[in-house]
């Protein structure tokens, strides 16, 4: 589904991604871990198409298409979803209204008719239940006054509403207490299917207890320096990154 080759990207004059290679197939869950500043969020932003970053080298193929040629909304309409690390507030725009427009854009891209108000309402109720999101929040402005946990749940709610093919979750677990973590993680797992894929960017192993990854990659200074399976995450949790980084340095 996703094939990244030798991806280099910079912001301003600073190069952050220094040659990423990654392949994600349908049905898979990949975890990306790494110390702060390694470029995890940058990778997520670059894949989503944030214009703040410049791709200087490399290619990204998404379902047979050149992803880098598409703009942000085009990528979204082709089923790419980014769960933001810091979801922003949009004053005055209600969640319900916002999602209605987004859902109908996706449908339009697929050649489907927009949902009727009744159908939409039903969809909203169904999906907010998945993440136990208080239905009252849908009539509030997007993320306005939401607690950290509510914001993250809201990201997963949106993911449920939009049903993406590739979901990139950027530190979805940061700032969550145990209960919220469980709810978010369960939500993600319930959305997992054979024909979609998930890339989970995380700092902590605990999320991966719920969202079991097929592959765990370690990102360090703009490169993926190691790939393993879920046991790698456990090891990193116990021993930190030093052992890995030292090994990498010696090569």
């Amino acid at each position: 589904m996703l094939k990244i080759e030798n991806l280099h990207a910079k912001v301003g004059d600073k190069e952050i991604l220094k040659g990423i290679n990654l392949e994600v197939k349908a049905g898979e869950v990949h975890a990306i871990m790494g110390p702060n500043g390694s470029g995890k969020s940058t990778l997520a932003s670059v894949l989503a198409g944030n214009e703040k970053f410049d791709v200087t080298q490399g290619s990204v193929e998404y379902n047979g298409e050149n992803l880098l040629e598409l703009n942000v909304e085009e990528r979204s309409r082709k089923g790419l979803f980014l769960g933001f690390q810091y979801p922003v507030e949009i004053p005055g725009v209600t969640m319900a209204n916002f999602m209605k427009i987004a859902v109908n854009e996706q449908r339009k891209a697929r050649g489907e008719e927009p949902l009727s108000p009744a159908e939409y309402l039903k969809l909203m109720r169904e999906k907010s239940a998945i993440v136990e999101l208080d239905s009252k929040l849908t009539s509030r402005a997007v993320n306005e006054g939401f607690s950290g946990g509510e914001k993250k749940k809201n990201e997963i709610f949106q993911m449920a509403m939009l049903d993406p093919k590739l979901a990139i979750l950027d530190e979805t677990d940061s700032g969550l207490d145990i209960d919220a973590l469980r709810i978010v993680a369960t939500g993600v797992t319930r959305l997992k299917r054979e024909d979609n894929a998930t890339v989970v960017i995380t700092h902590y192993q605990r999320l991966l207890d719920y969202i079991v990854p097929d592959y765990v990659h370690v990102l360090y200074k703009g490169r993926i320096i190691y790939t393993g399976d879920k046991s790698l995450a456990l090891k990193l949790e116990k021993e930190g990154y030093d052992w890995l980084i030292n090994d990498y340095k010696e090569e």
């Binding site: 198409g49 703009n71 909304e73 990528r75 949009i90 987004a102 854009e105 939009l162």
Partner: peptide, 18 residues
């Protein structure tokens, strides 16, 4: 906020209007 909306598939122009 515009970036956020575009990532959800809303065009830049529609996002601005919204």
């Amino acid at each position: 906020a515009i970036m956020y909306m575009r990532q959800r598939g809303i065009s830049a122009a529609d996002a601005k209007r919204l």
